[in-house]
């Protein structure tokens, strides 16, 4: 038995919003792979929960009217990886979430939970930052959308109002079109491991593949929340893909990131692998886009 005070179940977004208003103390549970573990450990003991797991309308991936990739917040990791639209337009996201925990965790864990927990090591977060994803929240007054970088306030805290739930994550067409990305997770073992550092890079090349028109890079665990690297991106934007560029790009990352010492790894080690991961992820992204590192 879980040490739970009460459970309220929502079967629609409207019901969830109404329950949020009626029970301001209650916490949301989606797949529960963070919430139930923390309840078991005592960190969330004795709390009231609002379960949104039964809201099937929040599952699945589609293209909306503006051709943004729309990922319902309750879509599980395994369903994201297997989804044909994700594979076609943002394969790197499917690959990134395929590195979460274990197959069973990927069947229960949702992308909504992975972003609403505000955790820097979340395996979806760096790719969503690198694709400038839009977070959709629904509350009493309707729908609110904000860029993912503004959604994260600080470690463990995101911008969700007391009456809101997250209903979708969108990747605008301008962000996925003609864009290819690669994610690298550095962990001490392959499965059941939280990232020591996560790095996601994507590029759009010119038609002749000789110029990087747009490069974006984001890290998890390089700071308290997932972060982009403006200096590194500036070094790559408009440049010709080459090994020398990859070196310059990767070294510039050091100016942007701010990792810390933890039991998992030292700051110096994280900085060291951040450079190597940037180089490898850029190289792979350029290859996926059909280019060559001259």
């Amino acid at each position: 038995m879980y040490d739970m005070k009460a459970l309220y179940e929502a079967s629609s977004v409207e019901e969830a919003v109404a329950l949020r208003v009626a029970h301001p103390e209650a916490q949301i549970i989606a797949g529960g792979s963070d919430v139930l573990v923390q309840m078991r450990e005592g960190r969330r003991a004795g709390k009231e929960l609002i379960s949104i797991y039964g809201i099937d309308a929040l599952r699945g991936v589609s293209l909306d009217a503006e051709e943004a990739l729309r990922i319902g917040s309750l879509t599980s990791f395994s369903h994201i990886t297997r989804d044909p639209l994700i594979q076609k337009y943002c394969n790197v996201l499917g690959e990134a979430v395929d590195q979460v925990g274990s197959p069973q965790i990927r069947n229960i864990g949702t992308i909504g939970g992975n972003t609403c927990n505000g955790v820097t090591s979340a395996d979806s977060a760096s790719t969503l930052h690198a694709y400038e994803a839009i977070v959709e929240l629904t509350g009493q007054n309707g729908v609110r959308r904000l860029p993912i970088k503004d959604f994260y306030i600080k470690a463990g805290q995101v911008d969700i109002k007391p009456d809101e739930i997250q209903t979708a994550i969108l990747i605008p067409k301008a962000s996925w079109e003609n864009t290819f990305g690669h994610y690298i997770k550095y962990g001490l073992r392959n499965a059941m491991e939280i990232a020591t550092l996560g790095c996601s890079v994507n590029v759009r090349l010119s038609a002749d593949k000789r110029t990087i028109e747009r490069c974006r890079i984001a890290y998890g665990v390089a700071g308290p929340v997932p972060m982009r690297c403006p200096s590194a991106e500036a070094a790559a934007n408009g440049a010709a893909p080459s090994k020398a560029l990859a070196e310059r790009f990767a070294r510039a990352v050091i100016d942007d990131i701010n990792p810390r010492d933890s039991w998992r790894a030292s700051k110096a080690f994280r900085q060291h692998i951040a450079v190597e991961m940037a180089k490898r992820a850029l190289t792979r992204a350029v290859e996926l886009a059909g280019g060559e590192m001259a």
Binding site: G32, Y53, Q104, N107, I108
Partner: peptide, 8 residues
């Protein structure tokens, strides 16, 4: 497959 220990 689901771990039933973390499933209500």
């Amino acid at each position: 497959a689901f771990n039933s220990c973390i499933y209500l």
